[in-house]
Simulated scan of single mutants.
Amino acid sequence: MPQLDRKQQLAFSRSSSFRRLQGKMGSATYRLNTIFVGLEHIAAGKGQLPGGFAVTWKAPESSEVAKQVADQARLFACLAATALAYDVVDQYIEDISSEPWITLSESTKQIATKAVTRPSNQGGAYGLHERALAIAKELEVDEPLHIALLEFLAKWRNSTVHGSIRDAKLSDASQKLLQNEVAISEAYSHLNIKLALDNFKSKKTPVPKEITSLIASAQNLLRKLDEAAIKEAFPTTDAVERYCLCIFRGLFVTESGVLTGRLNEYFTRPSDWRRKFLLKTIAPNGVTATGTPTSPAVGDDFFDRLAAEDPKQLLKTLTE
Rank of each mutant, 00 (worst) to 15 (best):
T56S: 14
T237M: 05
T113E: 11
S27R: 10
K176N: 04
Q179N: 14
V141D: 02
S164R: 05
L4V: 14
H129F: 07
A80S: 14
A134L: 09
V207S: 03
N180H: 14
E181N: 13
P50I: 06
G47S: 15
S174W: 06
Q9R: 14
T288S: 05
P293L: 10
F248L: 03
A168K: 01
E151I: 02
Y126N: 07
I282A: 02
D142P: 03
T113G: 11
K203W: 10
D304E: 09
I35L: 07
L178H: 02
P50R: 10
R31P: 01
A168F: 10
A134H: 02
A44W: 10
L251E: 14
P2S: 09
L4C: 08
Q110G: 09
V116I: 15
D300K: 00
S62P: 02
G257H: 03
N199Y: 03
E186H: 15
K276C: 13
A136S: 13
T290Q: 06
T29Y: 08
G38A: 09
S164Q: 05
E151L: 00
P296V: 15
I215M: 03
S16K: 01
L49M: 15
L39T: 05
V253A: 01
E181G: 05
P100Y: 05
E130D: 15
L195H: 15
Q9D: 08
F248T: 04
I96L: 12
D198E: 15
G286R: 04
E186P: 05
I247E: 13
V161I: 15
T56H: 13
T108F: 04
G299Q: 02
L21V: 10
Q68T: 03
A148T: 03
A112M: 11
E255N: 06
